[in-house]
Structure formats: structure tokens, C-alpha cells
Design a protein around this nucleic acid. Structure first.
Lengths: 216, 216
DNA sequence: GGATAAGGTCAATGGTGTTGGCATAAGGCG
DNA sequence: CGCCTTATGCCAACACCATTGACCTTATCC
């Protein structure tokens, strides 16, 4: 009746509906119509469940992805996919974005990224360096963007209101620069800065590739 | 006897010593030799205390900073200072890096960044865009770098060990790319990728400044 | 048909944030 | 001086949390 997959799916749904503080063994058991202690038959604890949720996100990002052979568009696609899935599950992303799960889907993603770079002809040291910069930047922006999406709903303290209640009402005498920019800061971009940053990173990698190519 | 500042300082010390899960109202009260409920005379709740901790970090980063008038080095200095303070308090950074406190020091930091750009002659829309990219990138990397420093100590699950126990032992048949890179991945950089990414962002801003200057 | 093991329940333990009521002490003011 | 107000701290309690060990089905294999 119960299964690891069903539990993870239910947990993801609860995170979406009740916020990242709404996930607890008790509530999860209630949603599954099972005793909370039952969950410990499938996971060592809530932390283990958290890692499983994170791995499910990565798996969802990689689903259906196939390398094209053009390393730049492949990396772009992988980064945007991972970022999109995390932003699509903000509460879950907050819990998992900075964890190393070591589970199947995460390993597959790392293998895929490394394979794209190696197949393109990058030497091993450069591959590892680019890989680290690429995955770190992707997850860092994913976590930040997820946080701004997840926090307003989860808590009534609502950081979002801060922009209207505090920033927009600061007197020009004490904070002139914020005051003059208030109307622009209030309508702050919902679009993430990640795509731009990703393109800049790919530019750097391309320059390196050209340098290698010219030297032979 | 008690004071807001004393409570925040004690909380920072507890976070450093006992990890980010070791901060609780009860333990904090114990460390201050006061009843947990006393804390609610100074803060609306633990979330309010969290925001105060975050603002203390920003205040620490700005302490002693003065603008030189050269916008590029000013921004670089601000970014590196903020990043360094967050990485220096990893457990506290994890709790606060993606929150908007709306308190005095945060407002001062935002005012300082905006002032640097406006004084340099950037138009208002460009100023706001660069400001957002700059602060988001700084905080995103700060949070990610802090996470990798904070997690190993806080939990015995130790993501750090994952690299040795899992990644380094993957068979070449199923994960050839990880296997060949394992020795490089194991000795992964302790250095953050933030300085490089920051310089790239400043490059972009400089290019924009040149374009504005050539047009008049 | 009986042993074995898996899957689920129950009750209990020790932790958490938070609240309301009560005590005490300090300071302002007639 | 005496009183009143306000601030500050303590105590007891509430509702929630993760986790565990003992128990009870139920199905499956030999």
C-alpha cells in the first residue's frame, strides 16, 4: 500500500500546499492515513526523507533530457532544467538545494555534466573546475530564487511586505538613494538573474575551449 | 542585565559552537541564565531573533567600510566583505542569508550600494538592475558556501563523507566520468567560486558604463 | 500448516516555540 | 514618604515535534 515513491510524492504535495514548515512526520502520516512511525520503515528519519525529496527533484529535472552533442547548449539546457524544477518546488528546494544526496538521480546528473564536458574535449582538470562552477552557481541561484518564492506563503511575517511597509516609506533625508529608487525596487523583477549569469559562465568556458583549441 | 545586543551575540556564539540546530529558546535561555520566556520581551519570536542575527552580520560586514569613490573597487570590497562575514558565521548565514530583515544595517548596506552606483553616474534603471544582480549573487554564493561549511558539523549524516563513501567507490562501468574524476572531485576546492563570479559581474557593469560614456 | 518476516499501530519519551499570569524592582510624581 | 506605573524576569502550562520499542496483524514461503 505505502511505498517510498508514494511518500515522497505526498511530501512534495504537502510542501507545496502547507509550506516548508508544514511537513512533519505527524502531518505526513495523517495525509497518508498511516501512523507517523510507519514512515520509519521506509526512511531512517526525516533527514533521510529530505534527501529522497531532493533526489526526486533532480530526477524530475533530468527526465527526458538527451545530450545533443553541442556542449554549450547541453549545459545550458541542464542548468535551466534544474533551476526551473527547483523554482517550481520552492519549499522543497529550500530544504534540499544545499544537500548532497548521493542517490541515483544526483549521480546521474553529475555523470551527465561531466560527460558533456569530457566529450567536448575538455581536459580533466578543466572539466572538474567548470563542473563545480556550473553546478554551484545553478544550485546557489536556485536556492535563492526558491527562497523568495517560498517565504511569503510560509510565514505571515512576509518579507514581501517589507518592501512596501519599510523600504517605500523611508524618508529622503536619511536614505536618499533608496527613496529615489523605491518605485523601481518595489516592482522588483520576478525574473531570476540566473539565465544571465549562466550565459556569462558559458562564455568563460567557451573562451577556455578556444584557447585549448588554438594551442592544439 | 539582558539586552538585545547581548542576546544576539550569545545566539551567534551558540550557533558557532552547537550548530544551526543547537539554537533554541530553551538553550539560549540556559546560556544567558534566564528563562526562555524572557526572550519574548526583546523579540516577537524566534523568527524575529533570526532577523536580528542577520542584521548583525550585515552590520559587522559594513563596520569600518568607507567608499573610495572608485565604484568598481567599492562594489568589490562590499561584496567580498559581506561574503566573508557570512562564510565566517556559516550556521548563522544559513538561517539568514535569504531573508529580508528591513532593519537598520540592511538598509544602510542597500543605501551604500545604490549610492556607489548613482555617484558613479549610472542612470536609475541601470543602478537598480546592477544592484539586484550584485546583491543576489553575493547572497546566493554566501548561502551556498556557508551551507557546505555548516552542514558537516551540524549533522552526523555528514554530506562530506558522501564524496569518499559513495562517489569515490562508483564502478567505472556505470559511472565512467565520475570514476575518472573521482580523485579530483575528492579534493574539491575549499575556495569559493564567488570572487571569480563577482569579477565577471563587475566586467558586465563596466562594459555598460563605457557604453553610456561613449554616448555622452 | 506452521514458521518467518514485513508492514502497520499504540503509547511513551524528551525535545521544541509560545503564552498568560504572577512576582519583583525601578523610577516618576503627588 | 507613599503610591502607581512600567519594565523585566520567572513559573507553569499548552500544543506541537521526531523518534523509539513493544505489540499485533497479515501474507508468504517451505
Amino acid at each position: 500500500m505505502l511505498s517510498e515513491q508514494l511518500i515522497v510524492e505526498t511530501a512534495l504535495r504537502m510542501l507545496r500546499e502547507h509550506g516548508s514548515a508544514g511537513l512533519s512526520a505527524r502531518r505526513l502520516g495523517l495525509a497518508l492515513d498511516a501512523d507517523p512511525s510507519t514512515l520509519y520503515r521506509y526512511f531512517r528519519g526525516m533527514d533521510d526523507l529530505t534527501l529522497a525529496i531532493g533526489d526526486a527533484l533532480i530526477g524530475q529535472a533530468l527526465q527526458g533530457w538527451r545530450p545533443t552533442g553541442e556542449w554549450r547548449s547541453d549545459l545550458r539546457g541542464l542548468g535551466l532544467r534544474i533551476h526551473a524544477v527547483y523554482v517550481g518546488h520552492p519549499q522543497a528546494a529550500l530544504l534540499t538545494a544545499n544537500r548532497v544526496t548521493g542517490r541515483a538521480h544526483e549521480l546521474a546528473a553529475d555523470e551527465a555534466i561531466l560527460d558533456v564536458l569530457r566529450t567536448a574535449g575538455f581536459p580533466l582538470p578543466d572539466t572538474v573546475r567548470i563542473y563545480q562552477a556550473f553546478i554551484d552557481q545553478t544550485l546557489a541561484f536556485a536556492a535563492l530564487d526558491a527562497a523568495s518564492l517560498a517565504l511569503p506563503r510560509e510565514s505571515l511575517s512576509a518579507d514581501e511586505d517589507m518592501w512596501r511597509s519599510t523600504y517605500a516609506r523611508l524618508p529622503r533625508t536619511t536614505h536618499p538613494r533608496i527613496a529615489e529608487a523605491a518605485h523601481l525596487l518595489a516592482t522588483r523583477m520576478v525574473d531570476s538573474a540566473y539565465p544571465t549569469a549562466l550565459e556569462m559562465l558559458l562564455d568563460g568556458a567557451a573562451a577556455q575551449w578556444e584557447a585549448l583549441r588554438s594551442r592544439g
